[in-house]
Simulated scan of single mutants.
Amino acid sequence: MKTVILRNLEVGSGSPKVIVPIVAVSTEGILAKAKEFANYTMDVVEWRVDFYEDVFDTAKVLSTLKALRATLGETPILFTFRTKKEGGEKNISPDAYLALNTAVANSGDADAVDVEIFSGDELVRKAIDAIHAAGKVVVGSNHDFNGTPSKSDIIYRLRKMQDMGTDIPKIAVMPKGPADVITLLDATQEMANCHADRPIITMSMGKGVITRLCGEYFGSSMTFGAVGQVSAPGQIPVEQLKTAMDILHRGLAD
């Protein structure tokens, strides 16, 4: 399996890398949260730009992104506009979605850009091509807040992301009970062991919190923690997440 480089970070080797989201509304709030991160251990910062009050002003987005880049130093940035249909804060037209993600990639200030894989194949291919042309990484994503698909469907979605050329396929689902969590973990290990040639990210949201801790064993290469406000159900404080993952990592090394 090939790894993916985000700035100075190698994704797909060692323990899962920890992503922490910024969900502030204003530029001032975004930069204040980024400064707060200096007190915590994390690997990647995700800017959830769909929370941003000026998200539809591309010049302001790029200006804030540049300031965020300066504040975070060498910490990689994942830029994400999560659409309302996949649990985000706002709707956006396909053309505006493509234009925003392309502009961000071309700015050079984000290291990776999230692309929702079920936004229409033509749009997705254009977005992936534009982001890759700018030399940036594509995180292909899909979020199911209504339930947990079958194991075969989860694998199908991840393989579609891989086949379309995303660098890191990602899926998040919602469990209705322990069996759904087991389904997600079983799909993860089968994808990682039998189909994936690149890092993948999987998680069961809400009460599937165990999946945010045990990715190293099942094959998920990244996970999400929180400093204050969460961006999805089930995210736990980053310091607690790191402690639990370190315990698991040491156990797996024995």
Results as ranks from 00 to 15, higher is better:
residue 2 K to I: 06
residue 6 L to M: 12
residue 11 V to W: 13
residue 11 V to L: 14
residue 12 G to S: 00
residue 12 G to R: 03
residue 13 S to P: 02
residue 17 K to N: 10
residue 23 V to Q: 02
residue 23 V to W: 02
residue 25 V to F: 06
residue 27 T to C: 09
residue 39 N to I: 01
residue 41 T to W: 03
residue 43 D to M: 07
residue 43 D to Q: 05
residue 44 V to Y: 01
residue 46 E to A: 12
residue 46 E to P: 12
residue 47 W to T: 03
residue 47 W to H: 05
residue 47 W to L: 05
residue 47 W to A: 06
residue 48 R to C: 00
residue 49 V to F: 08
residue 50 D to L: 14
residue 50 D to A: 10
residue 52 Y to R: 08
residue 52 Y to W: 08
residue 54 D to H: 13
residue 56 F to K: 10
residue 57 D to F: 10
residue 59 A to C: 02
residue 60 K to D: 00
residue 61 V to K: 04
residue 62 L to Y: 00
residue 66 K to Q: 13
residue 69 R to V: 10
residue 70 A to N: 06
residue 71 T to K: 12
residue 72 L to C: 09
residue 72 L to S: 08
residue 75 T to G: 01
residue 75 T to L: 04
residue 76 P to F: 13
residue 80 T to S: 10
residue 83 T to H: 01
residue 83 T to E: 01
residue 86 E to F: 14
residue 86 E to P: 09
residue 87 G to T: 03
residue 92 I to W: 07
residue 95 D to W: 06
residue 97 Y to I: 11
residue 99 A to Q: 07
residue 104 V to E: 06
residue 106 N to E: 15
residue 107 S to P: 04
residue 107 S to Y: 04
residue 107 S to C: 01
residue 113 V to R: 04
residue 115 V to N: 07
residue 115 V to I: 15
residue 116 E to L: 15
residue 120 G to Y: 06
residue 121 D to F: 05
residue 124 V to L: 09
residue 125 R to G: 03
residue 125 R to N: 11
residue 130 A to P: 02
residue 131 I to T: 06
residue 133 A to M: 01
residue 133 A to E: 00
residue 133 A to S: 00
residue 133 A to N: 00
residue 137 V to L: 08
residue 137 V to Q: 03
residue 144 D to W: 13
residue 149 P to Y: 12
residue 152 S to W: 02
residue 154 I to R: 04
residue 157 R to E: 12
residue 158 L to R: 07
residue 159 R to T: 11
residue 160 K to V: 07
residue 160 K to R: 10
residue 161 M to A: 06
residue 164 M to S: 03
residue 164 M to Y: 07
residue 170 K to D: 04
residue 170 K to V: 14
residue 173 V to L: 07
residue 173 V to D: 02
residue 177 G to A: 13
residue 179 A to V: 11
residue 180 D to Y: 13
residue 183 T to P: 08
residue 184 L to D: 02
residue 185 L to M: 15
residue 185 L to Q: 07
residue 188 T to V: 04
residue 193 N to K: 08
residue 195 H to K: 09
residue 197 D to M: 12
residue 199 P to M: 11
residue 203 M to Y: 12
residue 205 M to E: 01
residue 207 K to S: 00
residue 208 G to H: 11
residue 214 C to T: 14
residue 216 E to C: 09
residue 217 Y to L: 15
residue 225 G to L: 08
residue 228 G to S: 11
residue 232 A to C: 04
residue 235 Q to N: 10
residue 235 Q to V: 14
residue 239 E to M: 13
residue 241 L to A: 01
residue 242 K to M: 09
residue 244 A to S: 05
residue 245 M to Q: 13
residue 246 D to S: 15
residue 247 I to V: 15
residue 248 L to E: 03
residue 252 L to V: 09
residue 254 D to L: 12
